[in-house]
Design a protein around this nucleic acid. Structure first.
Length: 358
DNA sequence: AATCCGGGGGG
DNA sequence: CCCCCAGGATT
């Protein structure tokens, strides 16, 4: 693809003028030059809005000021700090990368685009962001903001969630990149997408690109960018049973191959469809030979919507007269204070806060 | 190429 | 409440 030189010049100069005004968002990672802190912020901000990621960035940089500090941390502590942010594989990969840098690279962050891109949890977007922000390397970022700005400005209607679309947007972004200051250019285009060229109701009257914007001229901002994905949402039914005995609660750690990997939960009986307490008692719980029958107390229900799943949760409490090891020994009996050191999915954090964390 | 992985914000 | 958002890994 090609872009007319006049359009490229217009895009760069208008974006630059807009950004050097008072228009950039003030966030703690802006202008940061420490590659560790830049990397940390970019991992946290993947699939995450700045205001949601902000408190996590503050707590991570405060608790782990250096890559060595993060590398030396215990897994559970890091997951607990990440609790609530979602996409927990980011946390797992972040920790693996910190340890790789600390042990294999002597604590020195890679200085080349190839070296950065090879890190776990770092893909094309994050590699371009770190390369430009930390080292001024000429790599254009392509994130959700860039898809929006470029599809509207250039009139690109190729779905961005396809191989062809990703390639087309990456090519366009690279052609438009102002290599004399790739850090400022990358920051500016994302700020424009976040504050002016927004998904709904873009502020075109305040946009520095308005006079040559394809979508603005054709009144097509609501139609761009184009997505092809049609998400199928699977419904699941989680019956959580808090097994209690002598001030302790049975807690398990979720394994690989499903949502919320490495996070914790009480005893879980998943069913094909919604079941009431009598069915749960007869068909599910009594099948587990290690748990003897006791009164099951209904403790309410809640729903958690994920991108591909809708989780219907029902909570129960069961006071036991002994301490069985449900599901073999893949869990542990913990005091309430010990729960506060572990990471749980948001739906369980809410329940614990309202029911067990006095 | 298609699918999965959280949780927050806006209308 | 429902709809939208969107990098990277995996298969």
């Amino acid at each position: 693809m090609t872009i007319a030189p006049g359009i490229i010049k217009f895009f760069r100069t208008r974006l630059h003028s807009w950004h050097t005004g008072h228009n950039s968002r003030q966030l703690p990672w802006k202008g940061e030059k420490d590659p560790y802190r830049i990397w940390l912020s970019e991992i946290i901000l993947q699939q995450t809005r700045a205001l949601q990621g902000l408190p996590y960035y503050e707590s991570f940089t405060g608790t782990y000021p250096t890559v060595q500090a993060l590398a030396a941390a215990a897994d559970e502590d890091v997951f607990r700090l990440w609790q609530g942010l979602g996409y927990y594989n980011r946390c797992k990969n972040m920790l693996a990368t910190a340890r790789y840098i600390a042990t294999e690279l002597g604590g020195h962050f890679p200085r080349t685009h190839e070296g950065i891109l090879a890190l776990k949890g770092v893909g094309p977007y994050t590699a371009a962001a770190i390369s430009s922000f930390a080292y001024g390397l000429p790599h254009a970022v392509v994130d959700g903001n860039v898809y929006r700005v470029l599809s509207r400005f250039l009139g690109i209607d190729t779905p961005f969630d396809t191989t062809a679309g990703k390639h087309q947007f990456a090519t366009a972004a690279q052609l438009l990149l102002d290599e004399t200051d790739s850090a400022a250019h990358n920051q500016a285009i994302m700020d424009l997408g976040a504050t002016i060229c927004t998904p709904a109701a873009p502020r075109c009257a305040d946009c520095p690109l308005h006079s040559k914007c394809f979508a603005a001229a054709k009144d097509m901002t609501a139609l761009l960018p184009v997505r092809s994905k049609k998400i199928v949402v699977k419904e699941r039914f989680f019956n959580y049973i808090f097994l209690l005995h002598d001030g302790k609660v049975w807690i398990e750690k979720r394994g690989a191959g499903d949502i919320w990997e490495s996070l914790h939960q009480p005893y879980l009986a998943e069913t094909e469809k919604a079941v009431d307490v009598s069915v749960l008692r007869q068909d599910v719980l009594f099948d587990n030979k290690s748990i003897r029958p006791h009164e099951l107390t209904d403790a309410g229900m809640a729903k958690q919507r994920l991108t591909h799943q809708l989780i219907h949760c029902r909570f129960y409490i069961m006071h036991l007269t002994d301490m069985p090891m449900p599901n073999g020994t893949a869990g542990m009996w913990l005091s309430i204070s010990e729960l506060k050191k572990l990471a749980f999915p948001k739906i369980l954090v809410s329940f614990l806060r309202n029911n067990l964390y006095f």
